[in-house]
């Protein structure tokens, strides 16, 4: 029987993101960076709820979203596991989300009055770091 992989995340109340978003974001990043890998078992709903001190229903909702999006998969009677790597979103959806993210990013950065080149450099550096972690 596979052991549960610890999920080293934390949530903050008072954040502008709802707790469900905080969990889904954190799990997505952990999967993307390879911190947890396909086939790893996630903590139970109740276990993660107790770990974070939140309502189990909230964890269930976050897990539900991640499963729908294809990040996690449920195995009958055994729990939730990280799904094998595959394209998790349709092309159109990916386009839409990318649009969304870029729009928000630009809206927040423009008022900063930073030179566009500097922004590019910073973004490249961040992605490079991610690549390194994943490798």
């Amino acid at each position: 029987m596979a052991r549960t992989t610890p999920l080293m995340i934390d949530i903050a109340t008072g954040d502008t993101r709802p707790i469900v978003r905080q969990i889904t974001d954190a799990v997505r990043i952990k999967i993307s960076t390879g911190e947890i890998e396909p086939g790893d078992q996630l903590p139970s709903v109740r276990g993660l709820a107790q770990q974070l001190g939140i309502n189990p229903n909230t964890v269930a909702k976050a897990y539900g979203e991640l499963t729908t999006e294809g990040w996690l998969e449920a195995r009958q009677g055994m729990g939730l596991y990280v799904a094998p790597r595959r394209q998790r979103l349709s092309r159109g959806e990916r386009e839409r989300r990318l649009d969304d993210a870029v729009q928000r990013f630009v809206a927040e950065v423009v008022p900063l009055n930073v030179a566009v080149d500097d922004v590019h450099t910073r973004i490249d550096a961040e992605f490079a770091a991610l690549q390194r972690r994943r490798a």
Binding site: T13, G14, P18, I19, G53, I54, N55, N57, T58
Partner: peptide, 10 residues
């Protein structure tokens, strides 16, 4: 206490 509510409310 909003912090509580955030944690427990459905």
């Amino acid at each position: 206490q909003m912090e509580e509510i955030e944690r427990i409310a459905d």
